[in-house]
Nucleic acid binder design. Structure first.
Lengths: 341, 341
DNA sequence: TTGAAAGCGCTACCAT
DNA sequence: ATGGTAGCGCTTTCAA
């Protein structure tokens, strides 16, 4: 069933039917009611493409994930984030498109997305240090927002980010408070902005605690289980092995954990693991109650917030840029509260 | 830049330019080369919606996730699966759309997706027992494939699934072989088909091992960390607590693990955790080398395979239905091979 | 080998 | 309050 058929069926013009369905005021309420009822009865939904052609926009949002940062999609919080964003899009009548792209074809992909008119706006994930995509998107005139930040970028842009630096600072301090002196950092690839900030927080936390930042206790790579395993195994071979781990992803942490198990270290030695995965954190120490947060609702909320940000940008292209910084929350032994308190 | 402008620029008709770009044979190679070069130079990509309007298809695939099964999207393997599917779609010039829907609006969503012509086909996730969506999609005439199966469904359909029953059978047998007699099953919601099959495999494994299937050792719910934690804590309170866990999701397993840590049980007692998450499995026992698989490549390959299946269906609507069943692989102590060997 | 023109389903402008 | 009609950008007959 399309507009033509529906309007013929109703004995009205396409114009009137279209207006009735789209809430234009100049349609009599009686007519509107009749039209709406008929539309419902015949399962009529306007053809997305025709609508788009006529109006010039797609009512679709693109999420672009780089393959080089494939950890992003594998990341367990990714789904939650997308779920939140999807909710907001649905509320506003937007569809959500997912594009995975090799780092080599990135520019081309954004360009084509724009040229094809496939999306009205884009959410950029996993920004790198001084990310060139910002300039590109700005040049293209394609509305976009960023999940994360890009240090050193000159282009103004809207973003939503977690306070990675602070979170890792506090986490490091926390571990130091527990008496750890050899704290390892299993980080993501430090070309990615969040990893840079996390490392910074870690280093500041170490210094503030009067501890030595040992390069042998810092690794960076794509955040796979295997990477976590290998890093931990290597570190256990050190003369002065770590007694605590600060891990950038729950997936990595599984690897670290496996390494720990392999060595049957936990029984004898006092080892802690701390995972930080955006808003998802994991602390463990045999001397204190476990500290754990898996704030799915927060991540989902973040997704919603960023989606709303983009929709606002699309509606008001010239608007001032918005920056939202979330403080990571920690749940300590079941009670909620910032770790730093 | 659009077709009109491009053709004007070239001094050709839109027809010829379109034909040249779309590989029609009646265009002279000289003309084609000129056209292709110009298109590239001007960053021309055909407008998706206009193309769709003219051809009648969207070159877009929809993935629909039900909120009731929200565990699906949070599932760490979801991203990998989507990544694989996305690759295949890209190769074939398809876009990928993600739709998250409340269980109440499911039918409506599928109907609208069809009516709006938003997608050429659909991938259905997390099918339930005798899932009514199969009939609906069949009636709608919207090409679809299923990630998983639906027991009791009368509609023929194509699917790709993991052999959940066998995997849980083998896992249970494995744990029994290690000497465990009290093996717990922390399962997903048993309205979901995969959970039903996993339970079946578990029960068969218990019986084959001469062990008693104790309802007190079986739970089912949405697979969150908290659910895993609560289930394990409750079971530890039993007079005859479990010594091993078979867990349906790595997220849940984190909860079980936390419960174990809480009780400081692992040091004194011989407790194993076995997680199964589609192709991602985790076994642990202090008496044997750790058993672990995180077959991201497999999950990705599964995504690719299912996407290809759908594309084939779209291209050949009447074709016979395809069923692909993957055997879960296990990596035991670093060596790869089926657990059952 | 190339071009003119109809039409995909809708919106929006201009009449009435 | 309602209708006629001109596009939106492309593909696809049909003609030349």
């Amino acid at each position: 069933m399309n507009l033509k058929e529906l309007s013929k069926h109703l004995g009205l013009s396409q114009t009137t039917v279209s207006r009735a369905l789209n809430g234009y005021p100049e349609v009599s309420e009686a007519t509107r009611a009749r039209v709406v009822a008929a539309a419902q009865a015949h399962d009529y939904s306007p053809n997305t493409r025709a609508q788009g052609l006529a109006t010039g926009h797609s009512r679709c949002i693109g999420h672009v994930i780089s393959v080089g940062d494939s950890g992003e999609m594998v990341n367990p919080i990714f789904g939650d984030f997308m779920a939140g964003a999807g909710e907001t899009y649905a509320e506003h009548g937007y569809d959500m498109m997912l594009t995975r792209v090799g780092e080599r074809d990135e520019a081309e992909t954004y360009r084509r997305l724009k040229a094809r008119g496939a999306v009205d706006g884009i959410v950029m994930h996993a920004p790198r240090f001084n990310d060139s995509r910002l300039q590109l998107l700005d040049d293209l005139g394609l509305p976009f927002v960023v999940h994360g930040r890009s240090s050193g970028a000159r282009v103004p842009y809207s973003y939503l980010d977690v306070n990675n630096r602070r979170a890792f600072y506090e986490a490091t301090r926390h571990l130091a408070t527990l008496g750890h002196r050899r704290i390892a950092l299993i980080n993501g690839q430090e070309k990615l902005d969040f990893a840079i900030r996390r490392r910074k927080g870690y280093e500041e936390g170490m210094e503030a605690s009067g501890l030595i930042v040992d390069p042998a206790l810092m690794t960076q790579d794509e955040m796979t289980e295997d990477y976590g395993y290998r890093s931990a195994v290597d570190m256990f071979d050190l003369a002065d092995p770590p007694t605590a781990f600060l891990v950038s992803s729950i997936i990595c942490a599984a690897g670290v954990r496996r390494a720990l198990d392999d060595r049957d270290l936990r029984a004898g030695q006092d080892v802690s693991i701390a995972t930080f995965d955006d808003c998802l954190s994991y602390f463990r120490n045999s001397a204190v109650p476990p500290v754990f947060t898996a704030m799915q609702s927060s991540v989902r909320a973040a997704g919603k917030a960023l989606a709303q940000m983009l929709i606002d940008r699309i509606d008001t292209p010239g608007a001032v840029h918005v920056h939202t910084l979330w403080e990571a929350e920690f749940v300590v032994g079941g009670s909620t509260g910032p770790l730093k308190e």
